[in-house]
Design a protein around this nucleic acid. Structure first.
Length: 270
DNA sequence: TACGACTCCATCAAAGGTTC
DNA sequence: GAACCTTTGATGGAGTCGTA
């Protein structure tokens, strides 16, 4: 049974962007919806355009409102009593979509609600389900942990055990590479996947969407040892892993995951 | 079971590059 | 030019597998 609310998946968001920026539709309704979307998906650049180009005043307070306003569509997921959520899952399907195109498992993960994540997994929720950015539940949790030390030091450890798959398969052009969870490359790849969108929605030192070790270390600074071992949470180690997995590198176990765009700056292997 | 060959990975150290 | 960082070759160790 389809959900009775509108879901802001890719086509719906494009429609909204056209209405607000190209057609400049009158009234605040569309701008308000787009602003809610920007706060939920952490898109400060979009909020800035709303504030500057459409004179939508509330968007000026993006940084203060992101953490509160952005959670509006999944507030019930913070609660310890979640019978209503499970009932909704029975009604619309375990992987139905919330208004911002999150599956219930993603919302449970980003709110750090470990018992709810367990309950959803028990009922068959799909850990691999992704939103229109390619984020699954683990990615939603990681994004929260990268900016919130309390989340990283709190529920993330348990969420990681529940949500991180044993391996990930990456198509590197000419071959399919499997990266097991115990490898450094596994978590670096997951991290860069989460940070990738921010290369385009946040202001960056480099315009080509590339990453340096500082971006990774910054994201990892509060992570517990069960996720990133302390000996791996070092600049030297990261540099080595990135360099050895660079496309043209002559290294026996090179997985060709990254492409070097400048010294110390890497992008995914396209 | 003991042993050696082999795979895979982390780490070290030195050379080279970048930035201020 | 110094400090800092990245790159890269070498090395050692853990784990696995086959064989006597």
């Amino acid at each position: 049974m389809p959900v009775p609310w509108p879901v802001f998946e890719e086509t719906k968001v494009i429609e909204l962007l056209v209405k607000v920026f190209r057609e400049q539709a009158p009234g605040a309704k569309w701008k308000q919806q787009l602003y809610e979307y920007a706060t939920c998906h952490d898109e400060p650049q979009l909020a800035e355009w709303l504030a500057c180009e459409t004179r939508f005043e509330p968007a000026k307070y993006f940084s203060q409102q992101r953490a509160t306003f952005g959670r509006k569509t999944y507030i019930p997921y913070f609660a310890h009593h979640f019978k209503d959520i499970l009932r909704q899952c029975e009604q619309y399907g375990i992987d139905h979509r919330l208004p911002m195109n999150q599956a219930p498992l993603m919302a449970a993960a980003v709110t750090g609600n470990v018992p709810l994540v367990e309950a959803l997994l028990e009922r068959g929720a799909n850990r691999e389900a992704v939103d229109h950015y390619g984020y699954n539940a683990l990615h939603w949790a990681l994004r929260e942990a990268f900016r919130d030390a309390r989340f990283a030091g709190g529920p993330l450890a348990a969420l990681y055990e529940l949500l991180a798959p044993a391996s990930i398969d990456v198509n590197t052009g000419d071959r399919l590479v499997r990266i097991d969870r115990h490898l450094s490359e596994y978590f670096i790849f997951q991290t860069l996947w989460v940070l990738f969108k921010s290369r385009f929605t946040h202001w960056q030192r480099r315009a080509n969407g590339a990453f340096d070790t500082q971006a990774i270390l910054g994201a990892w600074q509060h992570l517990p040892a069960n996720i990133v071992r302390p000996e791996r949470n070092k600049r030297q180690h990261l540099s080595g892993v990135l360099a050895r997995n660079e496309i043209h590198r002559d290294y026996a176990y090179n997985r060709a995951l990254f492409m070097r765009v400048a010294q110390g700056w890497y992008q995914f292997n396209p």
